[in-house]
Design a protein around this nucleic acid. Structure first.
Lengths: 203, 203
DNA sequence: GACTACAACTGAGCAACGCTCAGTTAGGCT
DNA sequence: AGCCTAACTGAGCGTTGCTCAGTTGTAGTC
């Protein structure tokens, strides 16, 4: 859209670094949504960008660096796009609706980047975890809740449930966004209040 | 243990194909639990096994084939190891306890193979999905439940919650297996009975 | 508008990779 | 002993990730 991936035929070269970097990451975003990393060569990225492989290594000294940058960008894009609408009355529903409707629009990409299983790549797993934590953080904020570790564990589990619902909704296409939002919100009290440990501090 | 990964120094060669295959998969299982595929070379596997790269390609015509075989084996191992104890009174709790305590014993491996995020490798994603479906199937069987699509979606979501709990328990180490089992079981009725769609067939 | 200087860029090339194929040899059979 | 199947190897091809010495576009000065 705003940044063309391929140079115009006779097109300009010698972009400012920031712009080139963005172009390369954009290409990675596009390519890695259909292919795993080990099936994407640096040569292919360079060819699409219309530059030499060497230049790519100036921006990303290692293929892994490129990979991490692309996945980080995907994560940031999700967090930006799934930002809750501050206008909405119910802040919890706002977070949920933002996320579920993001999956509605970009479900295939989301699955490719964050739900396909597998990897055991620590850097990538860290990005994934941090993304999930940010979403949970938003829920905590929306709820004005204490966030001790146990509550965090409950909320992470609940969020995994929400994620599964959002993806199944996208795949099966038989539930509305509102149904998923309402159902998820309805389950939250049970998740937060069902007893988990026997000798709790408070209560 | 039963199958040594490395040949004994002066050791025998020329294994029967089935045994060699098992050895290679075992090596893959071990290596891929710490490293992503694109960081594991066929040369390394061959070297550990004490054979030439060429031989490996007789068993697995493609690195991807090898990868798929290893992941499939990991999946089968999980399903076998997390089999519910038929002795147990409560069949639902049996499934849960089997799974949670499997994670307890092999959490790091499970994370590496099935929870690290990422991939967008269709064959791998298919194995992951099928594994999760099998676990949900066991729950359906344990409950003697109708399994229409909507119930499946609910159960898959609930299972995602259970998975998250089991992994967090493993990572944080502050919950007992029983606490996670009881909590998960306690949440199931709410998951199954909270309204999801407005015009349901029954009720 | 030519000169300079910096930095965006390239091309040739290396080691390691996935993968192939024409062979070699171990080991069970008669 | 000799044979014959098939488990195995080694040399080698194209491609990959990555390096480095060099080239060239372009912004700033005069």
């Amino acid at each position: 859209m705003s940044t063309p991936l391929q140079e115009a035929s006779k097109g300009r070269r010698r972009l400012p670094p920031e712009e080139r970097r963005r172009q390369l990451v954009a290409i990675g975003l596009q390519e890695l949504s259909t292919r795993p990393i080990h099936a994407l060569s640096i040569d292919r990225v360079a060819e699409i960008a219309g530059i030499s492989r060497s230049l790519l290594f100036r921006y990303f000294p290692t293929k892994q660096d490129f990979y991490v940058a692309v996945v980080g960008a995907a994560s940031r894009r999700l967090l930006r796009a799934a930002n809750p609408d501050p206008q909405e009355q119910d802040p919890l529903r706002a977070v949920l609706r933002a996320f579920v409707s993001f999956i509605d629009r970009h479900g295939d990409n989301y699955q490719a980047f964050f739900h396909s299983g597998f990897g055991s790549d620590p850097q990538i797993a860290a990005i994934h975890d941090s993304m999930r934590d940010t979403m949970v953080e938003r829920v905590v904020t929306a709820l004005n809740y204490d966030d001790d570790l146990l509550t965090r564990i409950r909320l992470r589990a609940w969020w995994a449930l929400v994620e599964s619902l959002a993806i199944d909704r996208f795949r099966e296409g038989m539930l509305s966004v509102d149904e998923v939002v309402d159902y998820s919100a309805a389950l939250l009290p049970a998740v937060l209040n069902s007893p988990l440990t026997f000798p709790e501090s408070g209560s």
